[in-house]
């Protein structure tokens, strides 16, 4: 399996950032960065990462299935993550999530048929003072009302 030259460069730098013999440390970041490019953690990617870090594939499987940001199936081009944890809940994040389900026609961890959007109810994303908060891929949006949510989605649709 080969990755883009930029990613290869990034991975080389990543592996070099751990002491010799401790390359396994690169596992979680490597999975994150490659997932960003590949779209999800495919069985081939598991094998590839295992090979590059010289570890048994089962050790990669152990890690992939542990971390909630690593996905076995592709998420949408825009992965909408709505925090409904306590601080956001107090600002009606549960209602925002329901609104999002309606707006996108998706449920928790579902992907739209065209692959453009996916929705996930996530745990605290560290935006508690600016609740309710969502992340579209890695981008934060704060104080998200249902109206603001619609604007965000609509503008993403326009970008397509």
């Amino acid at each position: 399996m080969t990755f883009s030259p930029e990613l290869e460069k990034k991975l080389a730098k990543l592996i070099a950032s751990y002491p010799p013999g401790k390359e396994k440390s690169a596992l979680v970041p490597m999975l994150m960065f490659t997932q960003d490019e590949v779209g999800c953690i495919t069985p081939e990617l598991v094998q590839e990462v295992a090979k590059r870090l010289n570890i048994p594939p089962v050790q990669v499987d152990e890690v992939v299935s542990y971390y909630s940001m690593l996905h076995r199936k592709p998420m949408g081009k825009y992965h909408i993550q709505i925090c409904t944890n306590i601080s956001c809940l107090l600002w009606d994040a549960d209602k925002l999530f329901e609104h999002a389900c309606q707006k996108l026609g998706l449920g928790h961890k579902q992907v739209s048929a065209d692959g453009q959007f996916s929705l996930e109810e996530v745990e605290c994303i560290g935006a508690c003072s600016w609740a309710p908060a969502i992340q579209v891929n890695y981008d934060f949006h704060h104080h998200v009302t249902p109206e603001k949510f619609d604007q965000i989605i609509d503008s993403l649709k326009k970008v397509q």
């Binding site: 396994k24 440390s25 979680v28 050790q59 152990e62 890690v63 542990y66 971390y67 940001m69």
Partner: peptide
């Protein structure tokens, strides 16, 4: 002194210091 960033991948438990170290070593947190 060399300093590097290292990304987690979504696990609250990794905020616990020994779990964080496990994660940093490429294991389950």
């Amino acid at each position: 002194f060399d300093l590097y960033t290292h990304t987690g991948a979504g696990a609250y438990e990794c905020g616990e210091e020994s779990a964080l170290l496990e994660s940093l070593e490429g294991k389950r947190g």
